[in-house]
């Protein structure tokens, strides 16, 4: 599980509309807004990759001008990276790299 904290910037007049549209997105919770058009949002997802997708969806909401990130926790994923579990396997270049290393 990955959790992110965001300040979403909207046009001040449209912040209610924006907050509603944001709440409707999967994994997104709105915690408050103010007169300058700032909306405080928390989003959660299964992985940081998916969280990135949620951010993209937030950015696409009409009247959202900018999604500013302030906090991210991904302690579960950190475990996986440390154990080598989540290294991407897509690189064909890696094979070459290993080629340049003498195998003991």
């Amino acid at each position: 599980m990955v959790v992110g904290g965001f300040v979403v910037q909207c046009l001040p007049d449209e912040r209610n509309k924006a907050a509603q549209a944001l709440s409707a997105l999967q994994g997104v919770e709105v915690y408050g807004d103010d007169e300058q058009g700032n909306v405080v949002v928390v989003a959660e997802a299964d992985s940081s990759g998916e969280l990135g997708e949620v951010v993209k969806r937030m950015e696409k909401v009409d009247s959202v001008l900018n999604v500013g990130m302030t906090y991210m926790n991904m302690e579960d994923e950190a475990e996986q990276i440390a154990s080598g579990e989540s290294t991407p396997k897509v690189f064909d270049g890696r094979k070459r790299k290993r080629d340049s290393l003498e195998t003991p």
Binding site: Y31, D34, V40, V41
Partner: peptide
């Protein structure tokens, strides 16, 4: 733990714009 992380995230964001939760 999940609830805690979410609240921490919300507080961090709110503190930047001076919003009280």
């Amino acid at each position: 733990r999940r609830e805690f992380l979410k609240r921490t995230a919300a507080l961090s964001a709110a503190s930047y714009v001076g919003m009280t939760l």
